[in-house]
Design a protein around this nucleic acid. Sequence first.
DNA 1: CGTAATCTTGACCAACGTCAATGTTCGTGG
DNA 2: CCACGAACATTGACGTTGGTCAAGATTACG
Lengths: 264, 264
Amino acid sequence: MTARAQSRSAELRGQTQSEREVRCRDCTLRRQSAFRQFSPAELTFVARMKRAHVARAAGEQILDPNNTDGTIYTLYEGWAARCRKLPNGKSQILDVLLPGDLIGLAANLLGSSGHAVHALTAVTLCVLDANKLAMLFREQPELALGLLRGRLQEQERADARLAVLGQMGATQRIGYWLSDLHKRLTERALARGRGWRLPLDRRQLADAVGLSRVHVMRALRTLREEGLAEVRGRMSTVNIPDPRRLARFSGYAELRSKSVCPIL
Amino acid sequence: MTARAQSRSAELRGQTQSEREVRCRDCTLRRQSAFRQFSPAELTFVARMKRAHVARAAGEQILDPNNTDGTIYTLYEGWAARCRKLPNGKSQILDVLLPGDLIGLAANLLGSSGHAVHALTAVTLCVLDANKLAMLFREQPELALGLLRGRLQEQERADARLAVLGQMGATQRIGYWLSDLHKRLTERALARGRGWRLPLDRRQLADAVGLSRVHVMRALRTLREEGLAEVRGRMSTVNIPDPRRLARFSGYAELRSKSVCPIL
DNA sequence: CGTAATCTTGACCAACGTCAATGTTCGTGG
DNA sequence: CCACGAACATTGACGTTGGTCAAGATTACG
């Protein structure tokens, strides 16, 4: 670990609730309207599933595609990326994960997952016991149904991404990706106003939208010239003057999905 | 309905088990190893969910994206396509549905679905009562867990498709698509030997892999010249001399997913 | 046999990828 | 604090891939 990563992770532990310290009862995520509200019984059940609260530095791998250790995670603070490597060496960022998102469900329920998860920033994670999932389905059917709902919503988003990659041009792809991200951030009260920090470099942004690094630049320039979005500098600052206009431009008009993430 | 469609659908009803005639107990799909095996209790539960068995002609819409009428379907015979229209008029085929696949889960559990489902051939469908889903989660937790597993598997396939669309060239995209289809068909004993009929025209194939009609031709020609796959004529005949070789060529090597479809 | 629809191919053009050169940021060591 | 080097951002030039247009071939169906 580099000196910088050490200091960052120390700073993180210092500034925020430290490991094992975040009790489900006090969880700040659950309070937000974007998430499903728990009944008292559900809350105690989930609290018993929770085994630990851990931190990872930026860049570290959170989930190994092959190695299922019987744990699932909820991302509590920070950003992560689901990615998949292809035989030809290229890699695709399947999705950006934000606080409240679930990690490792597929790996545990299917045995392996085909994708890895990496921390984009320093993160903290709730560690949940995957072996209690069967019990969850027996004792908390409402919660189980919520879990399914969450996956179905993810599928809707994945469908939309597929259509965008398949049918739209470079500028719109990036516009769409930014719109989706912006919506998810504001839903979770993570982007106040119109600007936020984007912890992806150009290479990663390119892998996310299926373009080359260089062409991403051209598309970003177009977005800037049209006044639709500004993405500046390394570890970029994003500024979207008029989210509506960007959404219209990039075809991000058909969105009905309010994220509901059932487990913390 | 055209005269032809009428005769087809009549023929279908005549040759196969007719409407309301397919009892879950006798369902031939469930017998295949590709599907989850039901316990007696689960079987009776699902049998009680089943409201009817209906037929649709090729081209008919099976699921309206906005109109949820409290039913979900299991495709019993024939092919269907999940598709999504984009604001710019283009459309994307998100996935091909084969016998055993579930239709309308998202539409019912989320309220609307963002995609439509169309019959590619004449089809028959099990009609299931979506309102009994909550009860299913309460009374049949194992089955509910299977339902979630099925969705997670779909997500794995969707992830792979996204990576393919984002990172690979035309020929490989089509090769991958054919490989995936071939595997699913043989799993379900729908393609004996190496050849089968593909009920998609070139436009639909293009929409599925995110290319133009014309470029699909070029890619198909390449595949033919390399001896990897032959796709011939309108309402095409597909012939894959060596599925392994095609899979290697198109990057379809990372597949661990044996389809498990939990509800009939 | 004729018409319409789709398949198929060639010619051309736009979008995107690759390569290479230059600027910019950031971390490191004097 | 400054100077340097490495990694990344940015831009231009050029090649490749894939889209568009249009014409002819084939098939389905009246």
